[in-house]
Design a protein around this nucleic acid. Structure first.
Length: 194
DNA sequence: GAGAAGATCTCCT
DNA sequence: GGAGATCTTCTCA
């Protein structure tokens, strides 16, 4: 836990944070066991000027977390089936978040397979709905603070070379498709199929 | 209080 | 490659 990212990492431009989160380690404590994975894919979501972002509709009960302190976790349910895991960025009072779309499993493989009822390793975390299942992230984790929580946090990992980062348009959104706000590690097999 | 839509995954053909 | 699952949240009456 020594390498845990501090508040100032999350504070600031969402676009840059999405890119910088690649290569970092997402860590979850579950029943005294540790689950962790390297972030290999992320997307940036802004505020009012970004149609697919929940924040574009204004401050509502669901999206209120995006206006709160950077470093908080924003979790919500899509299609009544899958949880999405986001990290709040920007300063307090300004909406912004980074959606974690995929991670590469590092530790706790057994737990992940139990949480997802045993699939192939590659299928555990190569998509936003899958990784929340593997990490056992639900609405109960909404508004957790990654800086102070003792069950969910992010650690710094190996530095990622600029040329290994690919930038494309976001996936699964119906508006604002033209913006290239999705980042992923080139060639990594745990990046979502899209 | 009812109706519609959604930042996805899985199974089936 | 396509549809169904399944429920929270928001909008409008």
């Amino acid at each position: 836990m020594a390498n845990r990212l501090k508040r100032d990492f999350y504070h600031g431009d969402t676009y840059k944070k999405a890119r910088k989160l690649l290569g970092k380690r997402l860590v979850k404590a579950q029943n005294d066991k540790i689950i962790s994975g390297e972030i290999v894919e992320a997307e940036a979501y802004f505020g009012q000027e970004d149609p697919p972002s929940h924040a574009s509709a204004g401050r509502t009960r669901r999206s209120e977390t995006m206006w709160k302190n950077p470093g908080l976790v924003y979790v919500y349910l899509v299609y009544g089936v899958h949880y999405m895991f986001n990290i709040v960025t920007e300063e307090k009072g300004k909406p912004g978040a980074v959606l974690i779309r995929a991670v590469e499993p590092l530790t706790g493989l057994q737990l992940m397979q139990n949480n997802r009822e045993s699939r192939s390793k590659k299928n555990l975390t190569n998509g936003p709905g899958k990784l929340t299942q593997s990490f056992d992230i639900t609405l109960a984790e909404n508004e957790l603070d990654l800086v102070t929580s003792d069950r969910l946090w992010i650690e710094s990992g190996e530095a990622v070379a600029q040329e290994k980062i690919e930038r494309t348009t976001r996936i699964g959104v119906s508006t604002g498709k033209e913006k290239k706000l999705r980042f992923y590690l080139k060639g990594n097999e745990f990046v979502s199929p899209g």
